[in-house]
Design a protein around this nucleic acid. Structure first.
Lengths: 338, 338
DNA sequence: CGAAAATTTGAAATCGCTTTGAATGCCGCA
DNA sequence: TGCGGCATTCAAAGCGATTTCAAATTTTCG
């Protein structure tokens, strides 16, 4: 069913039918009704490629995922947040997966050259993100999930990682902990730097300095966390508290604690960052897990929103959102016990 | 940079340039070289919409995700498997998210009507999957991840869930377990039915009958698993072994076991199904987890492959793959101890 | 050498839509 | 009656690629 068929069926020109369906004012209300009824009845929908070619809009946004390891379970949540908002706008989401940084850059170049997307979502930025610079150069609008420091203004949405870690660390310090291990993300990632800043700030506020040996950078897998935590617990004096970068990290740390013959929430404390996965609930862990909490799905939905604003022409300087992070105290964080 | 521009730049017609780039035989080798060099140098890539319109191929496949709860962490792995293979073919992956079954059907109708995709990947089928029937009716080619029983032949790739559970159950029976709890997926899902069949078959082989009260259906979240396992452990006599439907399920069961004051691998055994997430490793759990193992990422990559075969015209009857599932024995499954 | 065949190139039609610019019909009003 | 103005409708020209069909050039060979 093409526009032409529909037009013939109705005894109208393509022009009129097109206008009727797209809500142009110069078409008779009776005609419009007739057209849109027929379109519904016949299940007409414009051919996407033709529409895109004619309008010059791709009607799609891109999301490039690099290696599942880095993304882990976050992505499906984030994606469903994005998707829910995009569907309403008749914009689809193109997901490309790449293996390396170089491939990722190439992917953006391809997207730009073939004009497959109107904008992209950029995530997991580094402090000075090369991809962001490339996107600016390619003139692909984008919204950044996170922050980066490059010359130009960019649209971004981020959670207050520094604030979250400052509060979490402060809380542990207030409970008397002094040797607090930080299992952070990879060095260079903006969020990891911010978390470190927050962590250090809490110490500094109290005239204390953190132990460098208790600050680790790595991927957020149970395995990496297990190894790191195990090594740290073997030190003397051992840390009395852990700040875990993600729920997967928390699982690994938890395992290390048990294997060391210690008890979480009694001998050792932990606060983990929780992106809120529906299939893994901090509240249902045993003991229940204290967390810094920020739903990643909502962030995805909001970013989708911001993308449409950017595409509508809103100045990038005005598209900045810093979301606060809740500190939810549960059983895993308790007063130090030496 | 349009084809026209490139053609003018080279002093050639669009026809020739197009042919040169698309590998048609009737173009002089010297010309072809000249053209493709220029294309590379200038970074020319055909406009995707125009290309699609002209060729009638959408150059994309669709993947509709319904509610993150059902998918959980599986999807990002699966997706990266799919994506890696599709990128090579210059086919992109369109991900749509929907909230309900009805929305999902509507999404397929939209995809069909607007011809946004050449094919789709259908996953998590029910025994008689309505979506599969719709796709046939809409004449959208698809490959099913899983199996379903509808009138027509469909292309599918599935893992041998029945075989996997039969072996896992048999193993537990051989270890002397008789009260083996099965934490299965939702009723109606094909894989859940298959798993139940395998489970029952193992009992039947030994002239035994499983306890219906130990067969539960639910979503694969730690929370659901925890509740179910907790309830089952409260029964008398209590189950001595668990078959967990996923790694998330395993975490929940594990927690229930500990909370009941029991020890996994000693008092209670468990075998979990492992889809192999890079961020959660059965080998690194404590105790290490016995699993039925089948990497979902590979399945995604292979399905991408099958899609291209189907699009190339391979008869659906010939596109069937049943993947065996490994049974990996580790510390969590031991001889029963009454 | 010259006609036929083979090779190489190009002009124009096509894909299905939007949008420009023109045409039609109808009304009111002088 | 006639004409400007308004409300509607339409024919045709894009959008940027592929592809058909024809033309130009070169090669082959009797």
């Amino acid at each position: 069913m093409r526009l032409k068929d529909l037009a013939e069926h109705l005894g109208l020109s393509q022009t009129t039918v097109s206008r009727a369906l797209n809500g142009y004012p110069e078409v008779n209300e009776a005609t419009r009704r007739r057209v849109s009824d027929a379109a519904d009845a016949l299940g007409y929908r414009p051919n996407a490629s033709a529409l895109r070619l004619a309008t010059g809009r791709a009607g799609a946004i891109g999301l490039v995922l690099r290696g599942a390891d880095e993304l882990g379970p976050h992505m499906s949540e984030f994606l469903s947040g994005v998707g829910s908002h995009m569907a309403a706008q008749e914009i689809d989401v193109l997901v490309a997966t790449v293996a390396s940084h170089a491939e990722e850059l190439a992917a953006y170049r391809r997207l730009a050259a073939s004009q497959k997307v109107d904008a992209v979502i950029l995530h997991s930025p580094t402090t000075r993100d090369e991809r962001a610079e490339l996107l600016l150069e390619l003139k692909i609008p984008f919204v950044l999930h996170g922050r980066t420091e490059i010359g130009h203004p960019v649209a971004w949405l981020d959670i207050d990682n520094a604030g979250a870690l400052e509060r979490a660390t402060s809380h542990l310090l207030d409970l008397g902990h002094r040797r607090i291990a930080l299992l952070n993300g990879l060095r260079g990632q903006t969020f990891a730097e911010h978390r470190e800043q927050g962590y250090c700030a809490a110490f500094a506020d109290r005239g204390l300095t953190p132990d460098r040996g208790l600050m680790a950078n790595g991927v957020f897998t149970d395995e990496a966390a297990f190894r790191t935590a195990q090594a740290m617990l073997a030190r003397r004096p051992a840390p009395t508290a852990f700040l875990a970068g993600s729920m997967m990290t928390a699982l690994g740390v938890f395992r290390a604690i048990r294997q060391a013959g210690l008890e979480l929430g009694t001998d050792v404390s932990m606060i983990a960052h929780d992106d809120v996965f529906p299939y893994l609930n901090a509240d249902n862990m045993y003991p229940t897990m204290s967390t810094t909490r920020s739903p990643i799905r909502q962030a995805g939905a909001r970013i989708a929103d911001l993308i449409t604003q950017v595409l509508a022409g809103k100045p990038l300087e005005e598209v900045h959102e810093l979301w606060p992070v809740e500190l939810v105290l549960r059983e895993s964080s308790t007063r130090v016990r030496e």
